[in-house]
Design a protein around this nucleic acid. Structure first.
Lengths: 218, 218
DNA sequence: TAGATTGTTAATCGATTAACAATC
DNA sequence: TAGATTGTTAATCGATTAACAATC
């Protein structure tokens, strides 16, 4: 039942994880049904949390028999407003663009990099995965602007503010920031998630006993 | 007063941010005192949260006059168990290692990459920033093992489990995972923080109105 | 039907915010 | 001293967990 209160940020992040998990499950096995307990065990959550999260989306489970894997995947896809091979763009220095394309196989997660841009003119024309690196300034004119509305940003610190503005003008509404900056002034209305590498490393130094923790994205 | 309850994970992550912020403040200005309200405004938090967090560390503020910038920085450093230019190692494919060193200027955050390792033999010997890329297998023998206890991991998905094991054997206790994997089996007692790029991107697609959000790290 | 698992309400837990006395 | 800001206690808020009736 997708009726009551809207899902929290944390809940949405977990729904995204379920989507990733089911995507992998569908492509690697022929499992037709899945129970909340199984999802919970795989992802290190409680089954109640999983059911509570799923109560936000348009999907009914079957008491005694769990959820239909395909239907659940599609319901999540719809709730999260994802298309198949959902498009995103990548912005950053050439090495990050190349490194990311090798480290993060987007297709395996139902995502697809449709264009990439560098802030360094010298990077333009090189290849990052299948894509040719374009000039970040060309995104400004929106002439090469793809259908994507989300982006991952991994440029050098000095170019962050400029890059965010450019992305905003090009119609990007959500940005995942990998570049560490203390106080980026991100454009009004733009949704920005910060992955703060230095803070995460420092927290690890503080050496919490042994509780595996999540992002914080968390 | 560092007496009462231990700081939560979230609190520690924020303390790390304060440390980053004060580090920058100290290097770019001559500000001698800082108030909780100022820290809060800069980082988008409430002043109460800042004071509550700081109550965990060994540092007394002065009613009416805030905190001594240097003393606070040092107290945070001590609480987080950081040294100056705190060492960490980086593991990943060559491009990620090179890209990270350009995107993430560790010194500016009080951190220092002391060694880097690739899982791809062909990468060995190349330069990433100032460092020569070493073979991940050489870390196993611990012969080149540096004083670092924390690491950032950005290798290709297929090598994650092997890399985590290797890092564990080499005495690394905390790992920041950039490579997206659904269910890495990380060694007992190892503290792993996951930055899940695909999940963060999917959450952004779900298009929360306009609340700037953090990691999550969280 | 009996067994299993869902969806939801109530109870618990933890973290944030508000309030304010202490104090520099 | 008066003004400002700290440190902490109490109140609020939100999210997780426990419990269980509904139901396939």
């Amino acid at each position: 039942m997708s009726g009551t209160t809207p899902a929290s940020q944390k809940s949405i992040l977990r729904l995204s994880r379920y989507h990733c998990f089911l995507g992998e499950l569908r492509s690697s096995t022929r499992v037709r049904r899945i129970r909340s307990r199984e999802i919970a065990e795989e992802l290190g959550l409680s089954e109640e949390t999983v059911r509570r999260d799923l109560s936000h989306i348009d999907m009914e489970g079957r008491p005694g028999a769990g959820y239909d894997t395909d239907a659940l995947f599609k319901a999540l896809q719809e709730y999260l407003d994802l298309t198949t091979a959902h498009p995103f763009i990548a912005v950053g220095n050439l090495e990050m663009l190349q490194g990311l394309s090798a480290m993060f196989p987007a297709e395996d997660f139902g995502l697809r990099a449709v264009a990439c841009y560098s802030e360094r003119p010298g990077d333009v024309g090189s290849k990052a995965g299948d894509l040719e690196v374009q000039d970040l300034r060309d995104l400004r004119s929106a002439k090469g602007s793809p259908a994507a509305t989300i982006a991952v940003l991994a440029c050098e610190p000095a170019h962050v503010d400029e890059a965010l503005e450019t992305l905003d003008r090009a119609g990007i509404t959500g940005v995942l920031m990998l570049t560490p900056v203390l106080r980026p002034k991100h454009p009004e209305g733009m949704n920005v998630t910060y992955f703060r590498i230095p803070c995460a490393l420092k927290s690890l130094a503080a050496n919490e006993p042994a509780t595996p923790s999540c992002c914080a994205a968390e």
